[in-house]
Design a protein around this nucleic acid. Sequence first.
DNA 1: AATTATCGGCACTACTTGAGTGCGGATTGA
DNA 2: TCAATCCGCACTCAAGTAGTGCCGATAATT
Lengths: 162, 162
Amino acid sequence: MLKLTKRTEYGLIALTHLAQRQGEVVPAREIGDHYPIPRRLLAEVLKDLCNADLVASTRGAHGGYALVRPAQELSLGEIVSALEGAPTVSSCGDENLLHGENSCDVQPICPIRSPLVKIKDKIWQMMLTTSLASLAEPHKPYRSLASQTQANGLVKSSIKSP
Amino acid sequence: MLKLTKRTEYGLIALTHLAQRQGEVVPAREIGDHYPIPRRLLAEVLKDLCNADLVASTRGAHGGYALVRPAQELSLGEIVSALEGAPTVSSCGDENLLHGENSCDVQPICPIRSPLVKIKDKIWQMMLTTSLASLAEPHKPYRSLASQTQANGLVKSSIKSP
DNA sequence: AATTATCGGCACTACTTGAGTGCGGATTGA
DNA sequence: TCAATCCGCACTCAAGTAGTGCCGATAATT
């Protein structure tokens, strides 16, 4: 439903925490102590971040995790990719496109494929150009899009209640 | 997993089709004939679009659906809202926020709430400022974000395979 | 050498959501 | 009357998400 998973949420919490102690090795236990996150799941998430080379792990006593790069050089896109795969918008926008521009199951007359790809690209662009640091800083403006007025008169009572 | 549903995909197909015959009443059957979409599902989607007042329905023989507004004044955000609810990014970004800024289940010490809201807002802003018409037009540029370079050196081999 | 704290990997259950379908009823034009 | 259309309810099936359990491997401390 166009939402990030809990894994990503927990990952962002963990990475933000690691960013505050940049370079230091922090055990997962410490992160788990600070936030109401299931410890076991947090460990799972950190493992994935480690496999994606976003954090480095040290084993044994006094072990833990540390950011590999400073938060300014960590993009939201990388984090999301590591924890739930690159964002796709629908069937058409899947990794099919990454491997040769066809194999869409709605192939011959799909007037929507291009639009879906556009949407996916927009979201993806945003994520690649958004750093972890900019998300963590509370007062950073992000109004680059708010000035656009392509379509207007929107957002009436059309919000569907869950 | 941060993707739009099939419902939205089918909805965009239908709306694009209706846009091409702007004002005319088009039966769902005609749309179903043109694209490989399960007819029954398409009807479901059109019903939702009708309930959201994005299309108008005419019953009886020679009935069908028609766009209520021109495609230039239909935002992607409205369509997504009608078909799968307003986009949320995670538990924190839910409709809780719409009703008074608290009741987040990770309340007191959640350094990630603000970031998640930022992400949601960015996506939502993009959708509200993107019209159906701009998605349907094949050659429309949408590079307003591509020039940004907050974070760089990204998208290495960190794309997780499904 | 034993202990303890940490990460690593496998596999499993329960729950939620999404995709798709069936059926009969109501409305309207021919 | 008949046929084409929209309308509404409810249901199954598959896939993804959240969360947990267990035990082994590693390394510092004692």
